[in-house]
Design a protein around this nucleic acid. Structure first.
Lengths: 331, 331
DNA sequence: TTGTACGCGTTATCAC
DNA sequence: GTGATAACGCGTACAA
């Protein structure tokens, strides 16, 4: 890997001149520029982003961190794609990490990102009060929250109207004649989850249906918990006739439980889940879901970050996207 | 972000001493060490990985690059997970990029990685002769190929026995009584694809079935091409009674085409795909597939890279994993 | 217009 | 045992 110095030597100029050529400074006469450019290409010079980052003030790394709970979850994969596409279009690279909904891992990666002097970070906070993220924000690092939000601190944020999504989903179930509607929700500390629960409760209340504690179960957003909680609900003396499930993975788990018990969907039990799935169409039956515009979430988040880098002092902005009820054949 | 210097000032020692404390050098008397450690924690010192990387010889960045065609493809997401888990366990961070099977993007990201002085790179080459990757290898950068291999150059490599997988899949179809078996394959320049095609051909030959050119179609590994090619095959005057599809996304596309035409699976047309899918069980019908141990591929690849970093001069090693035919209900 | 020299935060090699 | 000090590769005031 040739350095500026080697190029300068070969072109018989100083490193300052080479640097100027590279940085498109106009203060260099055509002839010198030509010489330098030849040396540059002959040596196959590649600037070191590391050295550059060390020298420059923050905000010029062209590197951003993205922390997501699990890249194997299609919802987050789609967000990641949105972030990446905008990043690439602006020649930014991505430091991508899985937190596994694990505070330790998140903290480790956050440290790495700070130590790498990334320009900014995009992530869904672990919960409302995520201390590691709070620290990061306090340190002045640009942070854009996606999906979930922080309780007291306000950062740039892209979120989806979870309340509305849940409301529509449960209304849809009620319209189909269901009154015993089971809820399989996620971790209570997560803002999105609370919104979805609120939507569930309000939808019932609006139709004069009393919520039943035994029909509400909390899981951890993972597939297995969808399966076990669905089984718990189905084993009730008066089982629900419909299920509203709080995220994609738990929905698949619940569906598996239904199949395993030989229940017909939606004949015996209807099911609607939050988050769309890549092949929801090909599932048995095609799943009715509340679709979140995940790609859009990622895209907007990265755009917000770019805007923030351009105007560090600007007030924070919140983007709120609308989910969409996609009715297929599980309801 | 406090620097070594600031810590040194506060502890009234030199930066050399602080550095020694940090690097666990024993050449420092307990009392000084205590002072320094207090200053360290009071200031909340965090070492700069950037400065460190600039100073150190290569191989100490604790950062590796991973380039995959598409993070939204569950096969690659699983590989990424495998790589990440091993990386995290060894305190390595990941620079993750989507190449979109696009040489330009791949080249851009490869450049970034080199400029970032990553310790090594894991990727499935675009094709046999991928010039950007060849350059990278030539430059001395440790590269581990996964899934696909390079034609002339030998690097550390983790691959799956694609030939065997295809052989088993097509044998299975023949065992079920099929003789008109359509092939939907991917890009011919990709090593894995050629192996799968060879398996298809050999399986037919072994049972005395003459391959028919009209039954073989080449796509681009994407969902849409699975759909259109399946449609082409189904519109033949003598359509196939079974389909062998070259990757997961094209399989879903083909399945969609079958559904759309109101064909029964496997009654009218049987289908077996390469690569498992996360919810293959929940599909209609549950899909018979050749499962690749993708997580394992990622895991082993990162382990190979780690080994390479420990012993730069060692001969390259190839890991070959076995795929597994998972028979479900589409055949 | 071009060159010199400094500093970014480290690690490592010397002296003391 | 500890402290100066020289790199690492780059950008940029400042001098020429």
């Amino acid at each position: 890997m040739p350095s500026l110095q080697e190029v300068a030597d070969r072109a018989k100029v100083s490193i300052a001149t080479v640097s100027r050529v590279l940085n498109k400074s106009d203060k260099v006469v055509p002839k010198t520029r030509a010489t330098v450019e030849r040396a540059l290409s002959e040596l196959g010079y590649r600037p070191s982003r590391v050295a550059r980052r060390l020298r420059m003030k923050e905000g010029h790394a062209h590197l951003v961190g993205l922390i997501i709970p699990d890249i194997q979850n299609p919802f987050y994969a789609e967000i990641a794609r949105g972030v990446e596409d905008v990043a690439y279009a602006n020649e930014f690279a991505l430091l991508l990490c899985n937190s596994d909904e694990n505070l330790e891992k998140e903290r480790f990666y956050l440290n790495v990102m700070q130590a790498e002097s990334v320009d900014g970070i995009v992530l869904p906070p672990f919960d409302d009060t995520d201390p590691a993220v709070l620290e990061m924000v306090a340190s002045g690092m640009p942070v854009v929250c996606v999906d979930r939000s922080l309780a007291k601190t306000k950062t740039d944020l892209v979120e989806v109207d979870n309340y509305r999504g849940a409301l529509e989903a449960v209304n849809h179930l009620i319209d189909r004649g269901h009154t015993r509607i089971g809820l399989i929700e996620g971790r209570a500390q997560v803002s999105t989850n609370r919104e979805r629960r609120r939507g569930y409760l309000d939808a019932l209340a609006a139709r004069g249906i009393a919520p039943q504690r035994e029909l509400m179960r909390a899981g951890d957003f993972k597939l297995a918990s969808g399966r076990v909680l669905a089984n718990e609900l189905l084993e009730l003396r008066r089982p629900p006739t419909a299920l509203f499930v709080g995220n994609n993975l738990m929905t698949v788990g619940a569906l598996a439980a239904l199949h395993q018990r030989g229940l017909r969907v939606p004949g015996d039990v209807a099911i609607v889940g939050f988050d769309d799935l890549p092949w929801a169409e090909a599932l048995d039956p095609p799943l009715t879901v509340v679709r979140q515009p995940a790609y859009e979430v990622g895209r907007r988040a990265m755009e917000l970050l770019l805007k923030r880098l351009a105007a560090p002092g600007a007030p924070v902005t919140t983007v709120r996207l609308r989910p969409e009820l996609v009715v297929r054949r599980s309801t």
